[in-house]
Simulated scan of single mutants.
Amino acid sequence: MTRRLILPALLSTLAVVLAGCSGASDDGPADLSQVTLRVGDQAGIQQAVVEASGALEGTPYTVEWAQFPAAAPVLEALRGEAIDAGIAGDAPTLTALSSTDRIRIVEATRSPSQGGLALLVGQDSPIRSVADLRGKTVSPTTQGSIGHYLLLRSLEEAGVPPAEVNISFLQPVDAAAAMNSGAIDAWSTWDPYTAVAQQESGARILRDAEGLGTGLTFLNANTAALEDAGTRAALTDFTERYARALQWARENPQDNSAIYATLTGRPAAVADLMADRAQRATEPLSPELTAELQEVADRYVGYDVLRNPVDVASAMEDLGAPAP
């Protein structure tokens, strides 16, 4: 008889504990006024566009931005739960997904101009083709970045084995200085760094990303944020507001360019170029987009960049679906 009484009591206690861990509440929707959504950005660009558009007006939650020089540290902060969501391109997102199952893609955007992604050489460089990079030193910016992917795709297209190129991973500021001084022969990077190098240093585009990259950028979230009812609700709302901000940028090119001029302190020619190439729009997390990204993942595995294969479909999180 004693055992019959103990077992139901244990099961009842366990049910209470699991309900508490789920982040759900029987008292109604989460109180978003108590939620702070921490969003990782690169060089302040997306924050500036979102704020200038007024898209965050009236949010019942607080948005706290964190700035990073490139995607790799954004994703590292996301993995470590220092932020709840972060913006990064396709290649770095896949690099992160290959080493953790705690990150999900929650929103996709695409830039037709691929955000200025390009393989650059100095103004007076004798290098005229990707094939000329044999024996040269190239920085693809950070490891696993979109710059890294573009370099590897460009070398593959030109029939140059990566082993025949000296690859040096440098942060953007260091890479710019190294190319200007001749310490490296080429640099694979993206805006604002591409625009600045072109307009202020006369850098030439050796190969752009047309036909080689996807132009996709993602808003990623960690599973801790998605499992919390309040943070998930705030993130769902934020994705809609972010889409409106990008639409505002497309419809107000002059105002958008002014943002880049103020943010970078660069001349109008640099700001205009950056703003034009930054135009993007959201896309649904469709089977077609998933397949496209899976192709990039499989190529990255073939390049021996990813630690492990990535199943892209399992990393997609539809925020319109019920919370887990």
Rank of each mutant, 00 (worst) to 15 (best):
T239G: 07
Q279I: 07
T194W: 04
A88R: 04
T282M: 03
L235F: 12
D26Q: 12
A85L: 03
A197L: 13
Q123F: 09
L319E: 08
A66T: 14
P309F: 08
A24P: 04
R153G: 08
A85W: 03
T194P: 04
C21F: 05
Q198Y: 02
I6Y: 02
L119D: 12
G28N: 04
P60I: 03
L206N: 11
A297G: 01
P192L: 06
P73S: 09
A175N: 05
L293E: 08
R232P: 10
A268T: 08
L32Y: 11
Q42K: 14
A195G: 13
V196D: 06
A278I: 00
T282C: 03
I146D: 15
V138E: 09
S33I: 02
P29N: 11
I6K: 02
I167K: 01
P284A: 10
V35P: 09
T189N: 03
A163L: 05
T236S: 13
R299T: 09
P126H: 05
P73A: 11
S99L: 01
R79L: 07
G202S: 05
Q143M: 06
L94K: 06
A175W: 03
P267S: 06
A224G: 10
E51C: 09
D185K: 00
T189A: 05
P322H: 07
A224I: 00
A224P: 05
Y193V: 08
E64T: 12
A70I: 00
I105P: 13
A70Y: 01
D255W: 00
L14I: 09
A197S: 15
P324H: 03
D311M: 00
E57N: 14
L117S: 12
S98M: 05
V49Y: 00
R4C: 03
V16P: 01
S286G: 06
D304Q: 14
A225R: 06
K136T: 01
Y193F: 09
Q171L: 11
S53I: 07
Y300S: 15
E157Y: 01
L75W: 07
N256M: 11
Q143W: 09
E164G: 01
L219G: 14
Q171I: 01
I259Q: 11
R280N: 11
E57K: 14
V63Q: 07
L94R: 02
A234M: 10
S98R: 08
P60E: 12
L212T: 10
Y260D: 13
S257E: 14
R104G: 07
R134F: 02
G58F: 12
L119Y: 03
P309Q: 06
L120R: 13
R277N: 14
A261M: 13
A85C: 07
A268V: 04
T109Q: 08
L285H: 02
A96G: 00
P73N: 07
E283L: 09
T217H: 10
A158Q: 05
L5H: 12
R110S: 11
A245K: 09
D101W: 00
T290H: 11
D132G: 06
R207S: 15
S286C: 04
E156A: 14
A195F: 01
F68Q: 08
L37G: 13
L117T: 13
G159Y: 01
T282L: 01
Q254C: 00
P161W: 09
G44V: 05
Q114M: 15
L152K: 05
T36I: 06
L170E: 00
T36C: 08
A30T: 12
S181P: 02
A321P: 13
L14Q: 04
W190A: 10
G28Y: 10
V305C: 01
T231F: 03
T262M: 05
G302V: 03
V63A: 10
D124F: 12
